[in-house]
Nucleic acid binder design. Structure first.
Lengths: 155, 155
DNA sequence: TAACTTTGTTAGGATAATCTAATTTATAAT
DNA sequence: ATTATAAATTAGATTATCCTAACAAAGTTA
């Protein structure tokens, strides 16, 4: 059983590799450096670490890819990020760029329980019209039972 | 103009000094060590730093107190903490001990804008019965105008 | 293909936050 | 008051993350 803990910094590298690879042909050291606001040698050593962990692969002087395992991990992190962004922006009404920043900052630190609850909350508000009376209690009901209350289904 | 940035760690020390001094006669190095799960030398060096910043005072080998300035800062941090706790527990329904943990973890990282919004949200849900239809829009109205909608005042 | 430019790498160092082990001071007990 | 215990301090090491400067490889262009 391998040690599975990743630091904030390491998670950021992984996540950024995923995000960049979604709209770029290839991901390079300099791209990561730019996005993460660090210098290239920092990226090099982070990538070296991730290679040891079998989360990314890279030929010497070549471009960077996630391994299968790395992609699984990166997608989890990215999922958290998106959920937090939605929570902050769609629900609390925080401006996009700020919501983005906060999502980045706290995505690494929430307990799984709270993260789970926020995911559930997002799911709920995307279904529920938020207009029904007693709206919040409907959410608690949803958390508890996993089922939407009758009243919600009508929307 | 003095540099005013405190790290996560430093904020934790300050906050803990405040919290402990609320129900203890005096706060000592070992108390901080215990609460923060670090060893005494770590506390000593953190306190040394905070002394340089004029945020705490301590006689050699003596107990620890916040300066006036330190208390102001610590109260701000603690206020954030309590708001986040309420948000997680009272609103999202997270269990107390977990909500506590998450509040601790993220209190240092939120942007002022988001923190402000969460404070507003807490304020709102403590007044609003959460039962009125269109509840969430009432919150947005409150954010925008600073005033509670008519319907809320009836509760 | 030789020279130039861009990109990646290595070496070596800085800082923040922690630790252990040894030491010093303060407090309590006989 | 002397001794024993508890608490605080210092010295020195470790780890993670970042940096700059120097260098090496790859890619581009004339």
């Amino acid at each position: 059983m391998k040690k599975n803990y990743l630091t904030k910094s390491t998670e950021d590298y992984l996540e950024t590799i995923l995000v960049l690879s979604l709209d770029k042909r290839v991901v390079r050291i300099k791209d990561l450096a730019k996005h993460l606001n660090v210098k290239k040698p920092s990226v090099v050593s982070a990538v070296k670490y991730l290679k040891r962990k079998n989360l990314v692969k890279q030929e010497h002087y070549g471009h960077i890819e996630l391994t299968e395992e790395g992609e699984v991990v990166a997608r989890k992190i990215y999922k958290r990020h998106k959920a937090l962004y939605k929570f902050l922006h769609n629900f609390l009404g925080i401006d996009p760029s700020i919501a983005e920043k906060d999502a980045c900052r706290i995505e690494h630190f929430l307990t799984p329980e709270t993260m789970e609850r926020i995911l559930k909350f997002i799911e709920f508000i995307e279904i529920c019209p938020k207009k029904s009376p007693n709206w919040l209690n409907n959410f608690y009901y949803f958390v508890k039972t996993g089922k939407l209350p009758e009243i919600c289904k009508k929307c």
